[in-house]
């Protein structure tokens, strides 16, 4: 879907992105996390084609974002951390303008505007001026503008900042819905607990480098397998055998709780649950397992920082092994 190869971006005196490479699976939500100054916003700007990296490239399918940015933007939506709206325009005109600016044909434009408004729960506010909306609704309108052309990829930089808990909850639901509708999202945020609600993948940046990029527990792998958590009303000695017989893999049992991996969608899950109940298990809870993202993230950062670090190397001394551009200094 989207592939980042050897991205390098410098600011005077420091390297913001240091040979960053990764790829993002389609129909996933990748949580982009990292401490302040890790390079998250710079990475998103480069991925959106808004900033020209010193080296490396970003491919959206086969489109090189920095060679043909206009073409890439037709398949991409971006919401920056500090976004603005045309406060004098109504919600409908804001969306209509974005639809026109994205080159949507006139015969499809009204439908696109309506669909974007409905997706973000703004259909009943089309006549309201953008400047009169609440913070949460403004956020929704900004996302609606970013998706009005049905992009394959959406990049969101701190979309939940400044939102109250209710608006954050609503935003999470919106992002999940967009993913379910086939879009791929990359979301940068500091609020890890919230990211955990909807993210399928975790990408951790620190000092311009990737510390971790993996699928989250609870998120389906490429083959559709995901980790589940089963809690019984009371412990059962044959729990591991029953789960294995029902198709569970990598089963781990601790008292009345079991974690295991299973494959399949909602129907397969329902079937699995039925078989477990038929096997006589007193099921108290059955759900996709959740990792504690915050603990994992903090442990990762701590681990990276306790490693012995020598004196910082000046540009050229150590970076150029992965640089796409530039001789060794």
């Amino acid at each position: 879907m989207i592939r980042v190869e050897g991205l390098v971006f410098d600011y005077p005196g420091f390297r913001a992105l240091d040979g960053v490479s990764f790829s993002v699976d389609p129909h996933s939500i990748t949580a982009l996390v990292g401490p302040n100054g890790a390079g998250k916003t710079t990475l998103l700007n480069c991925m959106a084609g808004l900033a020209l990296p010193a080296a490396g490239r970003v491919l959206l399918d086969d489109i090189d974002v920095h060679r043909v940015p206009r073409e890439a933007h037709a398949h991409m939506g971006y919401l920056s951390d500090f976004f603005g709206l045309y406060g004098e325009l109504t919600v409908k005109r804001c969306l209509d303008y974005r639809a026109r600016a994205q080159g949507i044909a006139s015969e499809r434009r009204a439908a696109s505007v309506q669909l974007a408004a409905e997706r973000l729960g703004l259909a009943d506010r089309l006549g309201q001026r953008a400047g009169e909306l609440s913070r949460g609704l403004r956020q929704r309108l900004a996302i609606a503008q970013a998706i009005v052309h049905e992009p394959a990829v959406i990049l969101l930089d701190e979309p939940a900042s400044g939102l109250d808990p209710e608006a954050r909850f609503g935003l999470a639901a919106v992002l999940r819905a967009l993913r379910d509708q086939g879009m791929t999202l990359i979301v940068s945020s500091h609020i890890l607990a919230e990211l955990e609600d909807y993210s399928t993948h975790l990408l951790v940046l620190e000092q311009g480098r990737i510390l971790e990029h993996r699928a989250l527990a609870g998120a389906a792998d490429q083959d559709g397998a995901r980790r589940f958590e089963l809690i019984l009303a009371e412990p059962r000695g044959d729990l591991a055998d029953i789960l294995a017989a029902a198709g569970g893999r990598d089963v781990r049992v601790e008292g009345a709780t079991a974690h295991f991996v299973a494959t399949g969608g909602a129907a397969a899950q329902a079937n699995l649950l039925r078989r477990l109940i038929e096997a006589g298990l007193p099921v108290a809870s059955f759900a996709a397992a959740r990792s504690d993202l915050q603990d994992a993230y903090l442990a990762l950062l701590k681990d990276s920082r306790v490693r012995p670090q020598g004196p910082a190397a000046v540009n050229g001394a150590s970076i150029h092994s992965r640089d796409a551009v530039g001789p060794r200094a």
Binding site: D18, S23, I210, A312, A313
Partner: peptide, 20 residues
Amino acid sequence: QALAPRVLPADLRKAQPQAA
């Protein structure tokens, strides 16, 4: 030259996991 970007030492690079 004083504005040349300073980068992390090589040992942290080696410690990086393979990106997916």
